[in-house]
Simulated scan of single mutants.
Amino acid sequence: MEFRYLGNSGLKISSITYGNWLTHGSQVENDVAAQCVRAALDAGITTFDTADVYANGKAETVLGEALKGERRESLEIFTKVYWPTGPAGHNDVGLSRKHIAESINASLKRLQTDYVDLYQAHRFDTETPLEETMQAFARVIRQGKALYIGVSEWTAEQIRAGHALATELGIQLISSQPQYSMLWRVIEDEVVPTSRELGVSQIVWSPIAQGVLTGKYKPGQAPPAGSRATDEKGGADMIKRFMNDDVLTRVQALEPIAAELDLTMAQLAVAWVLSNDNVAAALVGASRPEQVHENVKASGVSLDASVLAKIDEALGDVVVRDAGMTTRTSPQKRPA
């Protein structure tokens, strides 16, 4: 396993980070989830990412149970706050001081730990002053409940403003967690250059484009039974932007590139995001332990310029690059 520094900090994390969005507490049974976590630990993964909103707290609970008994100092545990949780009352959402203070306590209880290594703003809150949010995060850090803070799906401008306030308050904003894959490159023009300047790393989600980059979805064919594209609990909705024959045909052209490198298409996809020097880790999930063992083989794989050029040529114009997509896909007001 390769380990990388997270932002301009002394914290190292595993370049393959285990994430339990859309799986723990919803798609897979708890015993299978525990097996996946054990597989991650056995493969050398030390970093685990979750959020309070995943399965309305159940994902944190499952992860906490699965990690019970492990040496806490040998792990890096990340969680997030923003989306509605609990009964979804009027203050059970957003990045207000109240919601952050209550959410961190609930997350720590579910995760069965005294602190998280990274506490992340799951989206930008347009209805709370940024000063209030950063002061609330600073309080969490000073209470010893989190060591560092990060953000998820913030624009370059929002990251810059949040980083400036964090610096004034004497705390470290060291990470950004955006969607990033061969097919979705909206962070490259603005978020990545700004992050490099500020000492912020990317922890990227969906590096395999919700499974599309595995090649299992074929143009002109129905999705395989039991795949994410058939999951009505949320998976199908997330993957639908890629489920058209033009994209799927282009993805099939990646197969010979992966074969030439003796990689699976999934391993190629993960290695590709890790080839960006601003990416500290690729988030991978799993519904079966064997998926973890396959994905970790991408750690440490080096892709030279000629391979990257072949990938670009194969995918052509189906790649989404518009930096404005971060704003357009984020909530413009707090969700009810």
Rank of each mutant, 00 (worst) to 15 (best):
G64R: 09
K98R: 13
S74W: 06
G94P: 01
Y82T: 00
K109L: 15
F78T: 11
L63N: 09
G89E: 04
L75E: 01
G89S: 07
E65D: 15
K80D: 06
V81D: 00
K80R: 10
G69E: 06
S103R: 08
H99K: 08
S107Q: 07
R71I: 13
L111W: 10
Y82M: 05
A66I: 11
E102V: 07
A106S: 15
W83N: 05
K109N: 13
R72H: 05
H90Q: 14
Y82V: 03
V93K: 00
V93E: 00
A66Q: 14
I77T: 04
Y82S: 01
G86L: 05
S74V: 02
V62K: 04
P84N: 01
F78V: 15
A106Y: 08
G86N: 09
I104S: 09
T85L: 03
E70V: 12
I100W: 03
G86Y: 00
N91A: 02
K68Q: 14
L95F: 03
R72T: 07
K80L: 09
D92K: 01
K98Y: 12
S74T: 13
S74Q: 14
G89H: 09
R110G: 11
K109D: 14
N91I: 06
S96H: 07
I77H: 00
K68I: 08
A101V: 01
E65M: 13
G86D: 11
K80I: 06
H99I: 00
L67T: 04
I100Q: 04
S107T: 09
A88R: 15
A106Q: 14
R71T: 12
K80Q: 06
I77R: 05
R71D: 15
G69V: 09
K109Q: 15
Q112D: 14
N105Y: 01
L95T: 05
R71L: 11
V81C: 15
W83Y: 14
